[in-house]
Amino acid sequence: MTFKYDFDWPMLLEDPYKEWIIEGVTTTIYLSLLAWVIALTIGIIIGTIRMTRSPWLRFIGTAYVEFFRNIPLLVQLFVWFFVFPLMLPHDWMLSWNRLPHIPFITALLALSLFTAARVAEHIRSGISSIPKGQFDAARSSGLTEVQIYRYVIIPYAFRVMIPTIASEFLTIFKNSALTLTIGVSEITSSAKAIEAWSFHGIEAYSVASVTYMTTTATVVLFMGWLEHRLRIPGLIAKK
């Protein structure tokens, strides 16, 4: 077994590689943050309507979750990228095609809708872990259903779910790498490009890996701190 490889780390600081890396890191972070915010919003709505009493709303919620969870993200990306524009009415399709950054917008759409289904599942299990008596207490005091969710259920469920919400950001963050297949210049695609141009794969992929790992570590530390700050006094954290 032989391992022959000439390392050249300084090359990463030279153009065009430096430019590619900066663009890749920026795009990855920007895309993930935006998609995360959208996914949380949609996910909270879907998760909550799955807990309502209306069978129709519940069905819509369940159908959404099953649909987006059981199709691989990469396939969803392709459907949004290749098929979705064809399904639009003709003049809509023309305006869609005139949009700037279509790959980025498509990636945002696919990542948010996919992750919203996961968030909805977390929301549902978070809400079902709340004792039924909490609903009774809130109902008996004359709060409306909307108020019960807004003031009692969601704020509490949110605290319970901080770790999962954080890990969903990391899921999006890692899944955003898939968008290189439709031409988004995120960090993995930058690394791939550097490898293709320079044949220095180890250096190239190290940049991407370091980006993912440092971000993951940062988010994990930050969430530990946040969880501690939002800790409900007197309650012992469930392990």
Partner: peptide, 12 residues
Amino acid sequence: MRSNPLILIVFW
């Protein structure tokens, strides 16, 4: 492994 995307691991 858990903090890297699968696609990057495949490239690696």
